[in-house]
């Protein structure tokens, strides 16, 4: 079978990618399923499903909070695998797991990837697993036809960007600013310069993320990239919603607005 991510990217044309992130189990697993549906209705291209971790050191306050709520709710990996199988009952939207490395080790990398494939998830993003440490998981992911998205950062050196480019399957994730997710740092002319440089250096599609919080941000970043990832802002919308029910419409409305700004 072909990988849903690469298949999608092959026929993308000029369309910009909109990739939302939701922490699985925040505020409940049932709600996560509804957000994924809402995202698809809003015209999102892929969905990142966050695997909550006790020590999310690359995350800012919003995703830390969401992870804590999910874990306080006793969210387990098995429930997350069940969630994605539920998504697959009605949707072929490409799904990625975004999660820290220790849960992979706890289950066993091989078994984890088998389960990922079985639950029809298409790609992995592991923020604390740089290329240098990921040979084992990359080989196993290849065998299971799961794509590996690596991150590049504004501090990544030229030569290393090439290596990351060569090892990526699917798309590259460009961290826009030095910081954690939900960073309040402003995008600057430096950001544009960095994205333009990536456009020249990468022969994969790449999305920009960390701190994207409005349709205007998305539009700006997509000018020199293939799209955006939005995470912390969505958690914030969910936290600020009047009720859980209205959080679903709030999410859909926001993402629809971002989609419009990208066309």
């Amino acid at each position: 079978m072909k990988n849903r991510i690469t298949t999608y990217l092959d026929s993308l044309g000029k369309k910009k990618l909109l990739v939302p992130y939701f922490t699985a189990g925040f505020p409940t697993m049932g709600m996560t399923l509804q957000y994924i549906k809402a995202a698809e209705c809003a015209g999102c291209d892929f969905v990142e499903i966050g695997i909550p971790f006790s020590d999310p050191l690359a995350d800012g306050p919003e995703i830390q909070y969401a992870s804590k709520v999910a874990l306080d709710n006793k969210t387990t990996l098995n429930q997350i695998f069940e969630l994605t199988q539920k998504v697959r009952k009605h949707s072929e939207i490409p799904l990625l797991f975004m999660g820290y490395y220790n849960p992979f080790l706890a289950v066993g990398v091989k078994k984890f990837l088998q389960k990922t494939a079985d639950s029809k998830v298409d790609g992995l993003i592991i923020p604390d697993l740089p290329i240098d440490e990921s040979t084992e998981i990359r080989n196993l992911a290849d065998k299971q036809n799961i794509s590996m998205t690596y991150l590049v950062a504004p501090t990544t050196e030229k030569k290393r960007i090439q290596t990351i480019n060569n090892l990526t399957t699917g798309f590259v994730y460009a961290v826009t600013v030095t910081g954690v997710t939900g960073s309040g740092k402003k995008f600057s002319p430096e950001t544009d310069k960095y994205l333009k440089m990536l456009q020249k250096s990468l022969n994969h599609r790449f999305v920009a993320g960390f701190g994207v919080s409005s349709p205007a941000d998305a539009k700006r970043l997509a000018k020199y990239s293939d799209g955006v990832v939005i995470g912390s802002k969505l958690i914030k919308i969910i936290r600020e919603a009047k009720t859980q029910k209205s959080s679903v419409t709030d999410i859909e409305k926001f993402l629809t607005g971002v989609r419009k700004s990208l066309s």
């Binding site: 690359a58 923020p127 604390d128 240098d132 950062a153 501090t155 990544t156 290393r160 910081g179």
Partner: peptide, 20 residues
């Protein structure tokens, strides 16, 4: 050379800090 003591050690950090 890779910062390993037997299998242990390494660099499991966000890409942003690798250069540092």
């Amino acid at each position: 050379k890779k910062g390993r003591f037997g299998p242990y050690g390494g660099r499991y950090v966000p890409e942003t800090v690798i250069a540092s």
